[in-house]
Design a protein around this nucleic acid. Structure first.
Length: 425
DNA sequence: AACGGAATAT
DNA sequence: GATATTCCGT
């Protein structure tokens, strides 16, 4: 059995879907469909040198790495932050907590995918690891190719949990070169992992076949991310705020990774929708249609344009026959658009992303920025923490409608403001 | 079953 | 790129 899944020279090609060779400057050929977002990895290895090296490489592959040289500390960290981690890589020989213990507590109790790593690969070690539910067994030194592909375990875990894939799911695979490799291990273990399956119905088992599962993972717009989104729009200018530009801005100026243009487009659509709705309500609320003194803010300027500068609300409002708005409450956001965040967790599917995509060259060098950092900065993230955007809270200078929700403001900028703003960029 | 919100299709 | 439709998780 090829225990060392880190030798897939010839198969690494498949990884890229028969495109360019696999080297340091990996670029995903499927960028749009499978954007990358860093997978948050906890790396534990008592061999500090190895730890550093791995961390370094993984970081290059856009993983978000948290590393520990001490098993107990790592465990302690996990107890607290298991939700901030997607994948655990544990060296088998960590003195405080060896691979098996790690598998037991982490893999089982926390239900996180655990990959065991070790120099050498004596049968005993490997078998035990597998039996205890290791997702994979890496032999050091671990090759870049393998590292590039570790994220799959996260993906797989989520998918199997959500029932999207099953062990026998014979996926169409055009990429199994790599899956294959990893799977040699899985196969030999069939029953081992039953150990960390919570319910009988579903196999937490790892199937043969790299999951080419083309299911579309969903991302969620965290409040933080949305904030950036809005900021980007403001910065760019509402008129010019089209998906592509917004995306670009978010990526380059805000270190946001993993978004696709479609993500932005979709979000933008709803954003506009929400704005429209509020627009309506605002008019109502202000008595605009009643000849009542209109809130200057609402009637002024910017009547809501679409991307082509076409007035979406031309002419007199035709909402008068709208019963629905009769009792429109004035406190937005009615749609919850701005404030929702049921999931308090960054992306609902941190799963599918492929970390192996080199961030475009940005001014700064590092961009480990993630969608969402809830807790204390992970060690590995220290370099590029969110620059407290304290000052940038939102605001458009000269904004005169403090009572409106900010997104609404965008659509009701004072005339002169618009001019100024346009002039600025 | 209804809805909100994201992905995908047009 | 915008809009309509589908899909999916609540």
């Amino acid at each position: 059995m090829s225990l060392s899944s880190n030798v897939l020279d010839e198969s690494s090609r498949d990884l890229l879907r028969q495109e360019e060779p696999f080297d340091d400057e990996i670029q995903s050929p499927v960028d749009q469909e499978f954007p990358s977002t860093s997978i948050r990895v906890l790396l534990v290895d008592s061999d500090l040198k190895s730890l550093r090296l791995m961390t370094s490489i993984m970081t290059k592959f856009s993983y978000q790495v948290t590393s520990y040289g001490n098993g107990d500390e790592a465990l302690a960290f996990l107890k607290k932050s298991k939700h901030e981690i997607d994948l655990v890589i544990w060296d088998f020989h960590v003195p405080e907590v060896d691979g098996l213990k790690a598998l037991n507590t982490v893999g089982k109790e926390m239900d996180l995918p655990v990959v065991i790593m070790s120099h050498g690969h004596d049968k005993e070690t490997v078998m035990k690891s597998i039996k205890y539910g290791a997702c994979d067994f890496l032999v050091k030194p671990v090759s870049k190719e393998v590292i590039a592909v570790l994220w799959r375990h996260v993906y797989h875990k989520k998918m199997s949990k959500s029932g999207l894939i099953t062990p026998k799911d014979s996926v169409d695979d055009d990429d199994n070169g790599l899956g294959q490799d990893n799977n040699d291990l899985y196969q030999s273990t069939e029953e081992g992992s039953s150990k960390n399956v919570e319910d009988s119905g579903e196999q937490d088992d790892f199937d043969r076949k790299g999951e080419r599962n083309t299911k579309k993972p969903r991302m969620t717009w965290t409040p933080e991310l949305h904030e950036k989104f809005e900021k980007a729009i403001q910065r760019i200018t509402i008129e010019k705020a089209v998906p592509k530009l917004i995306l670009k801005y978010m990526q380059e100026e805000m270190n946001v990774q993993g978004l696709t243009r479609n993500n932005v487009a979709s979000h933008l659509q709803k954003y506009r929708l929400g704005a429209n709705k509020k627009n309506q309500e605002a008019r109502q609320a202000s008595g605009w249609f009643n000849n009542a003194v209109p809130n200057a803010a609402l009637t002024a300027s910017k009547p809501l344009l679409n991307s082509h500068g076409i007035n979406l609300h031309n002419g007199p409002p035709y909402y008068m026959n709208d019963h629905a708005t009769a009792n429109a409450p004035i406190h937005y956001p009615p749609s919850g658009f701005l404030t929702t965040n049921h999931h308090h967790h960054f992306m609902s599917n941190s799963s599918y992303m492929e970390p192996f995509r080199q961030p475009q060259q940005l001014p700064q060098q590092q961009l480990q920025q993630q969608y969402y950092h809830s807790s204390p900065p992970l060690p590995s993230m220290t370099s590029n923490q969110e620059h407290g955007h304290a000052s940038s809270a939102t605001e458009i200078p000269g904004l005169i409608y403090p009572t409106l929700s900010h997104d609404l403001q965008e659509y009701f900028l004072p005339p002169d403001y618009n001019n100024d703003f346009n002039g600025q960029f």
